[in-house]
Design a protein around this nucleic acid. Structure first.
Length: 426
RNA sequence: GGAGGGGUGGCAGAGCGGUUGAAUGCACUGGUCUUGAAAACCAGCAUGUCGAGAGGCAUCCAGGGUUCGAAUCCCUGCCCCUCCGCCA
């Protein structure tokens, strides 16, 4: 959520800058609602003040043993009027809230303009696309004979866009998770957390998935309450800070969390239908930081570096992209995507997304810290990034480490997590 | 799942339906005193919002209700504690 005062006073600027994100703000409607809100709110509060003072004087009169009946009936009229005003104010406020909860974050000045991923800006790259002396296969062909990656059985068990792993591939998948979490804890100073994989709508509003993107989520409907499967650990982990005021000594907070992620992938029909690139369920190791406002841009660079470190340790070629306005997520002010080279597809594919949200999520969540300079609670800045998406990392390892005989080498750094195994025969 | 008890400021802990946004203690901040510190004493010390300011409004777990007036009464939900049952 944007700062309401900034939104009100700098409406043209906001509207202009949101165009970078292809968002059209209905300025006229917003302004007229805002004007009415102010009028009605002032009137309502005046009535409340009137009622309060009169009620207090009734209290005094009663204490003095005076007759309070005539006073009571006078206030009753104010009460009726007040109820009407309050109802009116409530309606206006609800409309305004709906608008402000649906306005995306403003892109940072360093975000390139553009409409889709083709307008993203190359920041740097690491390694060269892997060379093969033979025809490189994709992960589906590589595993089709051994069936250690089995899509069909998962479709039988659940539905399309699910997969199953067996034997050494299941183990490699698990090894990747352990490896990533260990690196972030031991080398990058993150605290490991375990959190619920099912969350309430408040949490999803906090991070920005709701109210606008309910269709992307798996919802668990129940007579008592609706809950949602998490689309990313960002949701539960960032919401640790919701409605909290942290002492300055607790900031920054850096969390690493492995979790499954569940996405409905509504609207991606026919996209990435081959293999396990795009799944309803996948594992991810997520980094989340809560920092002082002045530190968040440095933190974004550091966090991106932490994700890159994983790719480098695995020896996987990648590039870093600065997402353009049109490709930027709802809550993000700036995002770096890490794209790993996939020989099977002959292209770079997203494997991580690292974002600075500034105070956008913190305002929705009321996630604060006590600034020793002001002595006041102030909004934190939040960031997060995948480090990495595990399913896609598994694909990248399979495709980049494949050998002419169809086997796959295990990257050096993972071998200790695989009980010394160096090759997987497929 | 059954039976009780409870949720008040950073913490502890008061609060007959009416000058209670909330006593008191601790913690914290500033000051006096002291060579310095401790102690003592004085002062300050919740959050949001509107306002240039004075000040107004809202908030005592959350949401409804009763009332001229609710931290205080009623209903619902959530959470915590104790006992019984069940269970990984």
């Amino acid at each position: 959520m944007l700062d309401p005062r900034f939104l009100r006073t700098e409406l043209e600027t906001v509207t202009e800058r949101l165009k970078v994100k292809n968002f059209d703000l209905d300025v006229a409607r917003f302004e007229s609602l805002e004007t009415r809100r102010k009028e009605v709110q002032v009137a309502t509060e005046a009535l409340q003040a009137e009622r309060n003072t009169r009620s207090k004087s009734i209290g005094k009169a009663k204490a003095n043993g005076e007759d309070i009946e005539p006073l009571k009936s006078a206030v009753a009229e104010i009460g009726d009027q007040l109820n009407k005003q309050q109802e009116e104010l409530r309606k206006i406020q609800a409309e305004l809230d709906e608008i402000s909860w649906s306005i995306p974050n403003i892109p940072d000045a360093s975000v390139p303009t553009g409409t889709d991923e083709s307008d993203n800006e190359l920041v740097r790259s690491w390694g060269d696309p892997t060379n093969f002396t033979f025809d490189a296969k994709d992960h589906v062909d590589l595993t089709s004979e051994s069936k250690l990656l089995d899509i069909e059985v998962a479709v039988k068990i659940a539905h399309s866009r699910f997969m199953s792993l067996r034997g050494p591939l299941a183990r490699l998948h698990r090894a990747l998770i352990q490896f990533m979490v260990d690196v972030h804890v031991q080398e990058h100073d993150y605290e490991e957390v375990y959190v619920p994989y099912i969350v309430n709508d408040e949490s999803l509003r906090g991070t920005g998935q709701l109210p606008k993107f309910e269709a992307d989520l798996f919802k668990i409907q129940n007579e008592e309450r609706d809950l949602y499967l998490i689309p990313t650990a960002e949701v539960p982990v960032t919401n640790i800070a919701r409605n909290e005021i942290f002492p300055a000594s607790d900031i920054p907070k850096r969390f690493v969390c492995h979790s499954p992620c569940f996405r409905s992938e509504a609207g991606s029909y026919g996209k990435d239908t081959r293999g396990m690139i795009r799944q309803h369920q996948f594992e991810k190791v997520e980094l989340v930081q809560m920092v002082r406002p002045e530190d968040s841009w440095d933190a974004l660079e550091a966090l991106t570096g932490h994700a890159e470190n994983i790719l480098q340790k695995l020896g996987l070629p990648y590039r870093v992209m600065n997402l353009c306005g049109g490709d930027l997520g709802f809550s993000a002010a700036k995002t770096y995507d890490l794209e790993v080279w996939l020989p099977g597809q002959g292209q770079y594919r997203e494997i991580s997304s690292c974002s600075n949200f500034l105070d956008f999520q913190a305002r929705r969540m009321q996630a604060r810290w006590r600034n020793p300079d002001s002595g006041k609670p102030e909004l934190l800045h939040t960031l997060n990034g995948s480090a990495l998406a595990v399913g896609r990392t598994l694909i990248a390892v399979l495709e980049n480490y494949q050998q002419a005989d169809g086997s796959v080498q295990i990257p050096q750094i993972l071998q200790s997590y695989m009980g010394g195994l160096t090759v997987i025969d497929l």
